[in-house]
Design a protein around this nucleic acid. Structure first.
Lengths: 332, 332
DNA sequence: TTCGCTCGTGAATACGTATGCATCTCATGA
DNA sequence: TCATGAGATGCATACGTATTCACGAGCGAA
C-alpha cells in the first residue's frame, strides 16, 4: 500500500540508508546518486512516513495548541497566525479544544505525539502547566499566563492598557464608571482590571463593586451584564469591557435596551479585532498586535524545544495603544 | 527520558507484550496480571507512545482538516463540532490551513500521518481530491464538494435554500433583485445561485448580470459589492447574499452608505450563524444545521476509513429553512 | 609499492508498540 | 495415568526511518 524508502532504494539500485540520506541532502552522498534517488522517489511518488521518522528521531515536528472555545471570535485571530508561523518554522499544528476534563487533554499531550504545547486559554488555577513541567514537555503561554515567575509567555501589557482606558474616561469627564471584566482566574482579566482600577484611583474616581461584573470573555457576558448595570441606582455613563467580544455583547444589549451609544453610554473594548471596526460597531478599543503576539509565542516555543532559552523564564510583553472610534463621548 | 512499555514490564515483572495487552484490556490476560500491570503503569505515569503504535498498527487515529481561512467567522462554527465529534469517535484533529500552494498540503497529507482528511474549502477545480484518491487516502467533503458523482460529502440543500429566498422575495413584491453570490468555483456558490435563479425564472422575474456580483465568501465581498450595485441604473430593492458573512458585509456597507435596511433595501443571508441574530444585524437568512453538517461529515469519514461505506459514493444532504428576522420587507 | 586518508555506500541496529506463534501450566475427562 | 485442551504468557518479529559503524575503492605521499 504505502511506498517506503525500501521501494525507492530497490528502484534506484541503492540501499535504504542511502535513500534516506540522499533525500535529505546529506553531503556525504554523491551528486550522481542523489539525483538517481530523487528521480526514483519522484517516479514512485514517495513521501517519507512521518511515524517512522518520529520513532527514529524522537521528534515529531508537531505542536499542540490548546484552546477552550474556538467559536469565540478572538481565537481564530490568534490561531491563524500561530499556524502560519509554526508552519514556516517547520512545525505542524494540532488543535486541541477541551472544555471538558483536563485529564483527557493531559493524556493526549503526554503521548510523545508532539514536541511542544501552546496554552492559549490557561487559567491561574490550572494544574496542566505543572503536569507538563513534570514530564519535561516544553510549553508556552499565549495571551494569558499564570502570573508566576519562570513562565515562558507571549503576552500583552494588559495593565498598561487598562490604565490607558481609565485615563481617557476620566479626561472625558466620566465619574460613574462600570467595568465588565474577564474571569478572575485569568491574568488578562485581572491585569486589565488592576491597571484600570489603579489609574482610576490615581484620579480619585471610585469603582464600586455594584458597577463591576466579571465573567468569561464571551458575547453573552457583555450582553447580560448591561441590563444588570442599568438597574443599579446610578446607571454608569461609561463601561470598560474586558475585551472586544464582551464589548460587542454590551453594544448589542444597548441596542436592545434603547440605550444610545455613545450619547447615553460610552463603551470601550480591548484587542481591536477586525470586527471592532465594522460600521455597525465602530468600537473604541485598545489595540495590540495580535499577529505578533502569536508569532512571538510560536518562536518562543520553538526556541524552548531547542533548549535555546533563558532557564529562568521569558515573558515577552507587547505594548498597547488606545484606538478612538465612535463608541466614546464626553460624559453628559 | 520517555517511559516505555518495557519499563512498565520490568516493574510489573512481566513481558512487554503482556503490558501492551493488559493496558488495552485484552481478554487473554488474567485479572491479576492486568491489575499488576496497570498499577505499574500508573506508578510510572506511563503513556503509550503514539508513534510506536502508529508504526505497528498502521493507523494514526488522526484526521486532517483543510480550511483556507480560519478567521472567516463561518469556519470556527464547523471546526468546533467537527473536533468534538471526531474526538468522541476516538480521532484527533490536525488543522491544516493552506491558502498557498496545494503541493505543500499534498506533501503533508500523504506522509501517512493521518488516516483521513476533511476538505472544508474545496473548489470545483481543485486537483487535491484526485491526488488523495490516487494514494488511497480516505477523504470527505464538508459543506462544499466538487459536484461530481462518487463524492463522499456532507452538504446542504443549497439549491433548495436559494429557491426559498427567491420565492420570499417575489412574494414580497420585489422585482429589481440583486445577488452577491459565492465564487463560481464553489458548489455552494453555484447551487445557491442556481436555485435562486430557477425560482425567480419560474416567477417571471429576471436577474440581469448587471445586478450580480460573485466573490469569495468574505466580509469584504459584501462590503464592496453594495456600492457597485447601488451605482447601477436601477438600484435593487433586495439583495440575496451567498452567505451570512457576505450579508453582514452588505449590512455594514449599507450603514456606511446611508441606505436603510429593510426600508430601502432587503438583505438576505445564508447559514444562520449565531452572529446573524445579534441585535445589530437581526439578519433574515436561511438556516441549516451547521453542527449536524459537521458531525455527519466526521461520521462519514470515520466510516470511510473503516471501509464501511457505499463504494459508489455517499452524499448526505441537510434541509434548509427560511428564517425571517428584521432585514426584509415588502418592496416599496 | 605501500601506507594512510578521504569519499561514498551498505550492513546492522535502534526507536516503541502490537501481534502471530510457540510454550508452559493446570485442570478435566476417559 | 495420560492425553487433551483451555488459558496465560513470552519470544520473535514487523512497522519505516535515521544513524552508527564497517567496508571498499580510489588516490596521493612517502
Amino acid at each position: 500500500m504505502g511506498i517506503t524508502s525500501h521501494d525507492v532504494a530497490r528502484l534506484a539500485g541503492v540501499s535504504q540508508p542511502t535513500v534516506s540520506r540522499a533525500l535529505r541532502d546529506d553531503p556525504r552522498v554523491s551528486q550522481a546518486t542523489r539525483e538517481k534517488v530523487k528521480r526514483a522517489a519522484q517516479a514512485l511518488n514517495y513521501v517519507p512516513s512521518e511515524a517512522g521518522r518520529t520513532l527514529s528521531t524522537r521528534a515529531t515536528r508537531r505542536v499542540g495548541v490548546i484552546v477552550t472555545d474556538l467559536t469565540n471570535p478572538f481565537y481564530p485571530h490568534v490561531i491563524a497566525p500561530l499556524h502560519d508561523e509554526l508552519s514556516s518554522l517547520g512545525y505542524r499544528m494540532m488543535l486541541i479544544t477541551e472544555r471538558s476534563d483536563e485529564a483527557v487533554a493531559e493524556e493526549k499531550l503526554l503521548d510523545q505525539s508532539m514536541d511542544g504545547v501552546v496554552l492559549a486559554t490557561a487559567t491561574t488555577d490550572s494544574r496542566l502547566p505543572a503536569q507538563l513541567e513534570r514530564r519535561g514537555m516544553p510549553y508556552v503561554f499565549l495571551n494569558r499566563d499564570t502570573g508566576r515567575a519562570g513562565d515562558f509567555a507571549s503576552v500583552v501589557d494588559n495593565e498598561g492598557g487598562g490604565r490607558l482606558v481609565a485615563r481617557e474616561l476620566v479626561a472625558l469627564g466620566h465619574r460613574r464608571i462600570a467595568g465588565v471584566f474577564g474571569a478572575a482566574n485569568t491574568t488578562t482579566g485581572r491585569e486589565r482590571e488592576l491597571g484600570f482600577r489603579l489609574a482610576l484611583a490615581e484620579a480619585g474616581v471610585g469603582l464600586p463593586e455594584s458597577r463591576v461584573v466579571r465573567g468569561a470573555f464571551e458575547y453573552d457576558t457583555g450582553y447580560r451584564a448591561l441590563p444588570a448595570l442599568l438597574e443599579a441606582d446610578e446607571a454608569p455613563t461609561a463601561v470598560f469591557c474586558g475585551n472586544d467580544v464582551v464589548a460587542i455583547g454590551v453594544l448589542n444589549a444597548a441596542l436592545a435596551a434603547g440605550v444610545k451609544v455613545p450619547d447615553d453610554l460610552t463603551v470601550i473594548g480591548f484587542d481591536d479585532l477586525p470586527m471592532a471596526s465594522w460600521e455597525v460597531f465602530r468600537l473604541t478599543t485598545v489595540r495590540h498586535d495580535l499577529r505578533e503576539l502569536s508569532r512571538q509565542a510560536a518562536r518562543l516555543l520553538v526556541r524552548r524545544i531547542a533548549k535555546d532559552v533563558d532557564p529562568a523564564g521569558e515573558r515577552l510583553v507587547l505594548p498597547t495603544e488606545f484606538v478612538p472610534r465612535a463608541t466614546h463621548a464626553r460624559a453628559r
